[in-house]
Design a binder for these strands. Sequence first.
DNA 1: GTCTATATGCAGATAGAC
DNA 2: GTCTATCTGCATATAGAC
Lengths: 210, 210
Amino acid sequence: MEKLQNTEDKILDAAKQVFHKKGFNGARMQEIADYAGINKALLHYYFRNKETLFERVFKDAFAEIAFRLINIFNSEIPLNAKIENFIDFYLSFIAKHSYIIYFIINALHEKPEKLREIIINQGLSPEKFLLKIQCQLKDELDIDIDPLHIYVNMLALVIFPVVARPLIQNIFGYSDDKMMEFFEQRKKIVPTFILNALKGYENHKDPVKD
Amino acid sequence: MEKLQNTEDKILDAAKQVFHKKGFNGARMQEIADYAGINKALLHYYFRNKETLFERVFKDAFAEIAFRLINIFNSEIPLNAKIENFIDFYLSFIAKHSYIIYFIINALHEKPEKLREIIINQGLSPEKFLLKIQCQLKDELDIDIDPLHIYVNMLALVIFPVVARPLIQNIFGYSDDKMMEFFEQRKKIVPTFILNALKGYENHKDPVKD
DNA sequence: GTCTATATGCAGATAGAC
DNA sequence: GTCTATCTGCATATAGAC
């Protein structure tokens, strides 16, 4: 895992870490070079400038998270199961790779204009994706609701605690272990929370559903 | 609202805008000076350095949001009403002042070590605050659950969409008007979502509740 | 491809006149 | 208190040797 990589990979690895931790403005080319075990000049040899390097790293991070997300929701399983998969996977993945979320939020904040082209280049189709959720909500739970709200709610319940982690940890003086426990608890609490909430939206005028 | 302020207020106003938009690393003292209609030297006359100015602005932003939050949850009304007040107020306030959220998140990310002292200096007591929610959950809804999870869920459902706004807006090509409509809808959808979810947690072993 | 040395520019901070 | 001019340091980026 150490000496096997070529220089470009070493740079990308280093850039990932530093950009994730510091954001675009906070990151220093020197620090990236140090992490990669090379010097600054070589950075510019492989990537013309900081901007180019950043875009590459951002695209990789975004692609990884979008890919996993789309996969879960495109699978042919009941909505309940999708939600459980979604929560379970994301709570593990994001808690372990929280820098990605910070990174995306920071990138969105610092350079919102970059996003659209990246999404289009990924070949994603957000509308189809939402339509599928909407159909499942209607067919399986008999709920008429804008699927975007449900989807945003799910993302919120998973992502926000990770973003707010330093806040929670500082305010309540939680140790790292206690926070891991907190995230573990959420794997049970959040799916229940969402499914309970959805049940409350069911149309009761025509109770022929099972 | 324009010429009435003294120089210090003008600086604070300008710093608020610039720090909120760019974060600590992205902000430029020159830009703050321009916004305030003064020059850089005067900034340093009023605030020794960038750090000092930042801390002041951060404290103000944090204090404002914490103050409103505590007030709502400390009032002597039923939990249902608290939740509705909370959502309604925050969706209006945060959607209008989204920079504050960005600002706090950025600040947490860039300078997490600053948080603890600020909270302590504000004289806040997070534990008492949670205990109250816990009691109300038990007394009014007969639910035994870690109140921190419920509280985090509420914050998540309100704050996350604001943070993810550029994401949503870019992905689905929503106009600013459409986003305002989206946030308006959430004022109804989110309280229902939360209250439904909570109902699902009720203990049914002893159905003597109303 | 990789390095050392250096150019260039800019941001934070200060000196000192008014 | 407010300004102009300037210092200092650092970060990105390039030149050029090996």
